[in-house]
Design a protein around this nucleic acid. Structure first.
Length: 860
RNA sequence: GCCCAGAUGGCGGAAUUGGCAGACGCGCCGGAUUCAAAAUCCGGUACCUUCGGGUGUGAGGGUUCGACCCCCUCUCUGGGUACCA
């Protein structure tokens, strides 16, 4: 080894141990300093270990944490494990190894890797979603949702593969020309209705929409959630059916076009389809519906852009003009949105237009396009005119504008009791169960309707009972007493789902069948007096469940009595900054907000929104500019980088690659620049391997910096602080480089100045900074030293650079006193040789003068 | 199709109330040090040029004394979403 070598492999483990031993980053409940809660999206501890994407966001939050601590905040920055999930379960199916064991191994490895990067957390607050002491409270929240009537059960079609004997997620199914097949094994798969738990997130649609306004989130993410919730205002219109007592309700956002409705469409699943079909059509309709059944909503959209449908042979009566119009069944109408039926106005809706063209149905224009629509040579519409405008062909309403006509039509319909104003949402209720082993069991028992009546109201929902068919008979759901939580997973031998698509838990007979005391809720293995026979729910919760509320548990991780202590909740509140990938922009962030709104309503938390400020870190691509993946062979392993360059270099370089929020390619070559920066920082203080301090560093602080260096120092404090605050680490680092380069040129550096440089560098490169700080004679962590302050006086300058332009082009400049007059400045500009060369023999049309900035001559 | 984000040297990127385009770093070129290498240090590096200057921030137009920045149209790239009535 050479002289004065910066030996990161020796330094880094030493300081990692120091931080752990001294609990440097412990968050103190009720501390008098202002609190700051920084949250990272916690990882799924996969068997593959960390990839380079993890340290990116985590380094940013770690640096921000150290910065905030130095600024005097009591910082909470915890970490945990989102450890339920499919890969672990599949590993168990393959190897027979219990998911619990796999999780333990993986967590240990992740923890070790994080530590090596210098990511230090308050591990006393570590949580793990698979820990019964944690999921006890996930189950507790479910019980509250159940009791509030926000949970229900429904048969929902999901992908099922008979050959594999398992339910498949959407992404495990591949669409081919021959139909859908399984990703594993290429077996054919089918849609099969399976009993599912569903949460009524739609009850909170308006709250979730309104809550967005108050959040400091990226606009694009807010917009994504807004679109996902998809609120649309319109009206419900009731059509009578000619010759039947039933009627058909439709939802429309364009009641102004009601006179242009020339047919009605029912979704294939609509209950009236079977009643309304005429005999001669029955066979055709049956075939059509069967075909539609095999497709998911998604597929219908993708594979069936070409419209299809069958007329039912029945007719509806338009309430506004008594016109008799045909009723069709077509799969471009979805049962899951609105009423599952629409009024078709082909002149003013693209889909209806396509359909009407194909089946030669009347197209009646009722909105005047005023010459702006595309027309055929015969004057008919060549495509639907979907804009608003004055009405035509609409009797009394002719000439009214769409906006006003909408109101008039709704009023009219309301009077006639044939419709009303209505709001619809794209948002669907949340499918909240999986037929898997490795998830939270539902704290639910199924009982017969006869026994249900005897059961204490405590275990039942407010409102309607939850009902389902279990093993061929109707059963009702009750929850188990909170005292019995956590309800743990039973030990089983085979983690495979049963052949009928039920969860593996359905095979755990002794766990499954129990006796339930109707008043106390106690559960027995054997029949007892006062106890009825009951069957446990065999579904488990989805991975979202545990991640929906984990940020709350960090505040009070070991509380066995309550989900969270109110006083602690009042102190820490919700995260002040949440950093995580944009891939969770909708689902995770919406589900968590939903639960938080519910917890707010029942008084568990003191504010309705969980994440005030949100930041998405970007993705790091491989060196080839493609997404990192094993199959591409472009994966960068952080451990390899740490071995070669050290953790500080990795951290700095990750932040230096580009803006935190951007998607950016990794480039191993570029890391040299950062490595040089750190070596230079080291050598400026330590000149040999005996740790001799550089005599240029004035330890007595008797010297002063020259004015220019002094200004740069304070500019750097200002710039770096501002950049850290906004997580613009890339530009902060470039400023640190400029400052270090300047200091390197000096003959004498006051110790104070070097210390400022170290402190500014410390959040991003903590190990080397701590080590050098120690060499300067300090015994405590550098994060405990107060953050450097800007001296605004030092930033001031009496003179300023004025730019000289001719016709907006730079021709020269001059450093002038700020007090220099307009006239003198212009005079000086005119005399500048390069300016003069331009303006000589030319006429100056205009002289632009912006004080302290520019002079611009406009010439011809 | 719709919604969103983006396009700047060989590369990553910087520059915002509209005022020097290319900070900082990589790479490359030249030099110093060295027996040699590593490491280190110094200088150069958008393009063209007749060395006066000219041209340049995806393309075209516009507003302005002045546009990477604001407006319109288009191309391409990435992400999200998908018959939502």
């Amino acid at each position: 080894m050479q002289n004065s070598e910066y030996n990161f492999s020796k330094i880094e483990p030493k300081w990692q141990k120091f931080w752990a031993d001294n609990a440097t980053f412990k968050a103190n409940d009720f501390d008098s300093r202002p609190k700051f809660y920084i949250l990272d999206m916690f990882p799924y501890p996969s068997g593959a270990g960390l990839h380079i994407g993890h340290p990116e966001g985590y380094t940013a939050s770690d640096a921000y944490k150290r910065f905030k601590i130095s600024q005097g905040y009591n910082v909470l920055h915890p970490m945990g494990w989102d450890a339920f999930g499919l890969p672990t379960e599949q590993y168990a199916i393959k190897t027979g190894k219990h998911p619990k064991e796999t999780t333990k191994t993986n967590v240990a490895r992740f923890k070790e890797q994080l530590t090596k990067i210098g990511l230090n957390y308050d591990w006393d607050r570590e949580i793990n979603t698979t820990d019964p002491e944690y999921f006890k409270w996930t189950q507790w929240i479910f019980i509250q949702l159940f009791k509030k009537g926000l949970a229900y059960v429904e048969e929902k079609p999901v992908w099922f593969c008979p050959d594999l004997g398992t339910v498949l997620a959407n992404e495990e199914v591949i669409q081919t020309n021959e139909g859908p097949i399984s990703e594993r094994g290429n077996f054919s798969v089918e849609r099969r209705p399976i009993r599912q738990w569903v949460l009524k997130i739609t009850d909170f649609a308006d709250n979730l929409l309104a809550g967005l306004d108050s959040l400091d989130w990226p606009d694009s993410t807010k917009r994504l959630q807004t679109n996902w919730i998809g609120r649309s205002e319109g009206s419900r219109v009731t059509f009578a059916i000619d010759g039947y007592s039933e009627s058909i309700d439709v939802f429309t956002t364009r009641p102004d076009t009601l006179n242009g409705a020339t047919y009605l469409v029912l979704a294939p699943e609509h209950p009236l389809v079977s009643k309304l079909q005429s005999n001669e059509q029955a066979e055709i309709i049956k075939n059509y519906i069967n075909k539609a059944k095999l497709k998911s909503d998604l597929e219908r959209a993708e594979l069936n852009k070409d419209k299809s449908g069958v007329p039912l042979g029945a007719f509806a009566i338009n309430p506004i003009n008594q016109k008799r119009i045909p009723i069709w069944v077509a799969d471009y109408v979805l049962i899951s949105y609105g009423t599952g039926a629409i009024m078709a106005v082909p002149a003013h809706d693209d889909r209806d237009f396509d359909f009407a063209k194909k089946f030669d149905i009347e197209i009646l224009q009722v909105i005047d396009d005023e010459g702006s629509a595309k027309k055929n040579t015969d004057g008919t519409l060549a495509e639907a005119y979907t804009k608003e405008g004055p009405l035509m062909n609409s009797a009394d309403l002719n000439g009214q504008d769409s906006k006003h006509a909408k109101q008039l039509v709704i009023e009219l319909l309301t009077q006639m009791k044939s419709g009303k104003i209505e709001v619809n949402y794209k948002l669907r209720d949340w499918l909240f169960s999986r037929q898997r082993y490795w998830g939270e069991p539902f704290p639910v028992l199924w009982v017969t309707s006869k026994d249900y009546e005897k059961i204490n109201q405590l275990f039942k929902p407010n409102g309607n009972p939850v009902e389902s068919v279990i093993d061929g008979e109707i059963r009702l759901a009750v929850v188990i007493p909170e005292k019995q939580l956590p309800l743990k997973l039973p030990e089983i031998k085979n983690y495979k789902p049963s052949p009928d698509g039920q969860s593996p838990l359905s095979k755990a007979e002794s766990w499954l069948n129990v006796y339930f005391n109707v008043s106390s809720g106690e559960i027995y293995k054997e029949p007892k007096k006062g106890a009825i026979q009951a069957k446990r729910e065999t579904n488990t919760m989805p991975q979202w469940a545990g991640s929906c509320w984990y940020y709350l548990r960090y505040i009070d991780p070991n509380n066995s009595e309550r989900i969270i202590d109110s006083a602690k909740e009042a102190y820490w509140k919700t995260p002040d900054l949440y950093i995580g990938g944009a891939e969770h922009a909708v689902l995770h962030l919406l589900y968590a907000r939903f639960w938080h709104h519910v917890l707010y309503e029942i008084g568990v938390v003191s504010s309705p929104e969980p994440f005030k400020k949100l930041f998405h870190q970007g993705i790091i691509l491989g060196e080839d500019g493609e997404k990192m993946s094993k199959s591409r062979g472009n994966v960068v392993n952080p451990e390899v980088i740490i071995e070669a360059y050290g953790a500080d270099t990795l951290r700095l370089y990750l932040m230096f690659l580009g803006p935190l929020e951007a998607m950016k390619p990794w480039n191993t070559k570029g890391i040299e620049g950062i490595a040089r920066f750190l070596r230079k920082l080291w050598r400026l203080l330590i000149i040999d391997n005996n740790a001799t301090l550089n005599p240029k560093i004035d330890l007595q602080n008797t010297s002063t910096l020259d004015a220019e260096s002094e200004r740069l120092l304070h500019q750097s404090i200002e710039k770096v602080s501002k950049d850290y605050e906004s997580l613009s680490f890339n530009t902060a680092i470039s400023q640190l480089m400029i400052l270090l380069n300047q200091m390197t040129k000096l003959e004498q550096i006051p110790k104070n100045a070097y210390e400022v440089l170290l402190q500014l560098t410390a959040p991003l490169a903590p190990h080397i900074s701590e080590e050098l700080w120690r060499h300067l004679g300090y015994n405590s962590s550098i994060t405990e030293a107060p953050w450097p302050k800007v001296n605004k006086e030092k930033l001031k300058s009496d003179s300023v650079k004025i730019i000289f332009q001719v016709n907006g082009k730079y021709r020269g400049d001059a450093i002038l006193p700020k007090t220099y007059s307009k006239e003198s400045t212009i005079e000086l500009a005119k005399n500048h040789p390069r300016v003069q060369a331009q303006i000589i023999d030319k006429k100056i049309l205009k002289e632009i003068y912006v004080p302290n900035k520019i002079v611009n001559f406009v010439i011809k």
